[in-house]
Design a binder for these strands. Structure first.
Lengths: 350, 350
DNA sequence: AAAGCCTAGTAATACGTATTACTACCCATA
DNA sequence: TATGGGTAGTAATACGTATTACTAGGCTTT
């Protein structure tokens, strides 16, 4: 018999009923089964190499104790840190976390959604476009599509629009951007460029608005924004064009705020290609503080996001949600990390 | 009734039996159900917002059409690329891939293994220590522990020891290292250092052996090896000590081979700390060709691993295994990518 | 008209587990 | 001897699906 052993096989081997096996292996046999019998059941289970069938258990219990963490990409280690935090809290409560990289990055789903999102008890979704999330929870075109989170499994969103129906655990990206602008302004920069991610997600919209507001609040400061893909090459090409078109005049920005560290790496390349010194000719800032930030030369001034804490708090919120609670959304602060990629502009513009 | 609707609810709503619902929604109703009835079943399902319970389906079918990809870490984007390849092939066959970052990196498990590895049809495991894999498939101390892959779910290993019982899909890391040594030797280097990962996994043992053999085959060449953690800081500290102890004499290596790109980033830092020019005073090489390699300044000479292809081939092998086939292990070549971090040694040592 | 076939479904069942309700037995007490 | 209570288990059941075997009724063929 090469068939995988079931609890009934164990029962036969131990000379007891299947119920007894279940009770013993669940550890709930105190006062219901004799020590001797319990021992022989465990022995039989070990001997047969029995492991419970999770599909059956899930069906019976109506839960899987598994949570799906949806991330836009695995190319950015930021989400690995989010996972770490979520997994730690989950483990404390007997839950597992499994990662599902969204097929289309930050964007909405194209084609059928194939993730096993029904065999799970809840979903954590990070930094996704809004459309993607409603598609996730309820198939488009079906009733409830406008009520994401009311149907399907409980959902907690990370780094997403707090105005949605699902609880959100956020990084205060607006404050982070304000800190960067404040830092640059303090150094004397007045002509700022913002290289924005070309993704319609809350987190990026918020960054753009925060930068605009912060610069607007400065006297005699100017801001120009351009969009680019969140890749080294995409950012590099965008900045190269930018410098080619406007780089000659006195109009050129003296500081470049990038929407994330990966884009900053591309900006470094483009600046070097154009013969600009960093930070002498151009100060550059990132966002996230991933590994890359410190590896760049000069080391990148950026905002460190509490990725691990983000994962922890999100998981806690989801557990509360599973427990019929009503978690409040919250927002964690980031930290301005000043390194070597920012300096006073060589020639003051005031 | 806020209970989630079942196929029986749909049946009642459509005025048919549950079997009919199941048949219609599975799309197998050709010639068994009238067009009119099929239509009303689908309409009822949509109206109720019915979605099948996967636990029940999995139990009934005895399969989940889900594969677990176990990776040592999400901090290294290499594994994101492996995922991409695996997911593509899986999707073509109606499978989903879910990622499980091993709690202890490349190493064996500590404490109970909490991954949902039973609710899946197969496992892909990448770059893990051997002990970790046997623990995964069969709990330690149980029969079959020495026959990983014979019990439990089918397993395909990536970047792992081909001598194991599970089929392996590998990168030819030995050839990659030989190419790097050959490149450096061609530039005139004779005193080589190898900064090795302090992990007891096949992939790193193989790299070390390949470097040793390649250097041994060179006339009048010398090699020194040290181990370090696979982190920027770990590598940086190791190289700092190394340069401090041996860096003064003529004994110092003129080229430093690092076991992966992340370690190379740490080596950059240490070299800069010591006032060494790269590649003038010290050539440095990496391995993997992750994003970081091109972002470093100077850009890193490394070996590009076909991560996406690796994931694709591994998934294909697993599907074959699930189909009762006997896939042969295979090994994909890497590509030497020469960038700016390697150059002839400033003063020849011969 | 009898026999067979096609159409359009349905009833019954099994997957493997966890749990609830029950029972048989033994012993102590009245 | 009857009653009650504790001990050590077991029988039965439900979770929701997919599938197999079956049936009722109408139609065609000989």
């Amino acid at each position: 018999m090469s068939r995988r052993p079931t609890s009934r096989d164990v029962a036969v081997a131990a000379g007891v009923s299947q119920s007894t096996v279940s009770i013993v292996l669940a550890g709930k046999w105190q006062g219901r089964v004799s020590v001797h019998t319990a021992q022989s059941v465990r022995e039989a289970a070990t001997r047969l190499g029995y492991r419970p069938n999770l599909a059956a258990r899930n069906l019976r219990l109506g839960q899987t104790r598994t949570v799906l963490l949806i991330v836009p990409t695995l190319a950015n280690p930021f989400f690995g840190a989010v996972y770490t935090g979520a997994a730690r809290i989950a483990a404390e409560h007997g839950f597992s976390v499994v990662v599902y990289p969204w097929p289309d990055g930050h964007g909405p789903a194209r084609g059928p959604f194939s993730a096993p999102h029904e065999a799970i008890d809840g979903v954590l979704a990070s930094s996704m476009a809004t459309d993607a999330l409603t598609d996730l929870v309820v198939a488009p075109g079906q009733p409830g599509h406008d009520r994401a989170g009311d149907m399907g499994v409980p959902l907690v969103m990370l780094d997403s629009d707090p105005a949605g129906t699902a609880p959100t655990v956020n990084v205060d990206v607006a404050d982070g951007m304000r800190a960067l602008v404040g830092h640059l302004a303090g150094l004397g920069h007045r002509r700022l460029w913002h290289l924005a991610a070309d993704i319609d997600a809350w987190t990026f919209r918020t960054r753009a608005r925060a930068v605009a507001a912060a610069v607007a609040a400065l006297p005699d400061a100017a801001l120009v924004r351009r969009a680019a893909p969140i890749t080294v090459d995409g950012a590099r090409a965008a900045v190269r064009r930018w410098l080619g078109e406007e780089g000659r005049g006195a109009d050129r920005g003296t500081a470049l705020l990038c929407d994330d560290d990966v884009m900053a790496a591309g900006a470094y390349k483009a600046a070097r290609d154009a013969g600009l010194d960093i930070p002498g000719d151009l100060s550059i800032t990132g966002f996230d503080d991933i590994l890359l930030a410190e590896a760049l030369e000069p080391e990148l001034t950026t905002v460190r996001l509490p990725a691990v804490a983000l994962g922890e708090r999100a998981m806690s919120a989801l557990l509360e949600l599973l427990d019929q609670g009503r978690p409040r959304g919250l927002s964690l602060p980031g930290d301005l990390i000043v390194r070597a990629s920012t300096a006073p502009p060589r020639r003051a513009t005031t």
